[in-house]
Each structure stands twice: as C-alpha cells, then as structure tokens.
C-alpha cells in the first residue's frame, strides 16, 4: 500500500484527467453523437420499414379476405340465381301444363256440347221425319181402309165410342 501511494504520480493523474475529459468531449461531439444518431436513425428506419411491411401484409390479407368474401358472395348469388331460375322454369312448366290442361278441357267440353247439340238436332229431325212418315203411312192406310163403306163406318164407330162425353 505504501509502495502504491509512493508510486502514485500526480502528474500522470493530472494528465489523465485532462486528456480523458478532453477526449470525452471531443469524441462526444465528433464521434459518439453522430454515430449513435445515425444508428438510431437507421434502427428507426428499419423499424418503420418493418412496420410498413407488416401493414402492407395486413392490407394484402384484408384485400385477399375481401376478394374471397366477394367471390363467396358472388358464388352464393349465382347459386340463388340458378335456384330461382330453376324455380321459375319449374313454375313455368307447371303453369303451362295447367293452362294446357284447362284449354284442353275447355275444347273437349265445347266439342261435347256441340256434339250434344248436333245429336239433339238430329234426333229432332228424325222425330219430324218419323212423324211425317207416320202421317203419310196413316193416310195411305186410311185410304186403303176407307175404300169400302163398312170399314168407314166401323172406324167412325170406333172413334165415336172412344169419345167420352163429359
């Protein structure tokens, strides 16, 4: 310890303090501040760039998600459209069928009606003809019958007997 104190050089101590403080001030001004600032700036830049990249990535993901959503929506819309179209088609076919059925029914009914009319007319005609023919036949029969006097009398008798007086 005594040797240490003995060896202690005040001059060296003095110079060390002066030189070190001077060096500290010079380095601070000309080296450390610019270096640390530059490094900080660089790190800040890297951080910002990374953040920007991250943002871009998120944006990208959003865009992808959006497009996917759009695609999904479009697909769903197509599905519904197809479904609707199919329904419309089915409905149209069903409608057409029903309409055709109704129309057919109507035609058949009209046909039946006209047939009925024709039939009635024909029957009426036949009846008339039958009546005429019957009158003619009766005329002819009567002529034949009423050729002799007896017969005529007889008929008158019959007819008179049939008449009931009230």
């Amino acid at each position: 310890m005594e040797k240490l104190i003995n060896e202690f050089s005040a001059g060296l101590f003095f110079w060390q303090l002066i030189l070190f403080v001077l060096l500290l001030l010079l380095l601070r001004k000309f080296a450390w501040k610019p270096i640390l600032n530059a490094v900080n700036e660089r790190e800040e830049g890297i951080k910002n760039a990374l953040a920007a990249a991250e943002d871009a990535k998120k944006e990208m993901q959003n865009v992808t998600a959006d497009s996917e959503k759009l695609l999904r929506e479009a697909r769903a819309e197509r599905e519904t459209m197809l479904k609707e179209a199919r329904e419309i088609k089915d409905k149209m076919i069903a409608d057409a069928k029903a309409q055709a059925q109704a129309e057919g029914d109507k035609i058949v009914a009209a046909a039946q009606q006209s047939i009925e009319g024709e039939k009635k007319a024909a029957i009426a005609d036949i009846k008339n003809q039958v009546a005429e023919l019957s009158v003619e036949i009766a005329e002819k029969v009567l002529r034949n019958e009423l050729d002799n006097k007896n017969k005529q009398l007889k008929l008158v008798d019959d007819l008179v007997s049939n008449i009931k007086l009230k």
Partner: peptide, 13 residues
C-alpha cells in the same frame, strides 16, 4: 480513437 470513430461518424454522413 478520434480518428477511428471520427471517420466512422463521417462515414455515416
């Protein structure tokens, strides 16, 4: 030290 780190500082600039 002044030369080394001064030149480093300048090289950033």
């Amino acid at each position: 030290l002044l030369w080394l780190f001064g030149s480093l500082a300048r090289s950033y600039a």
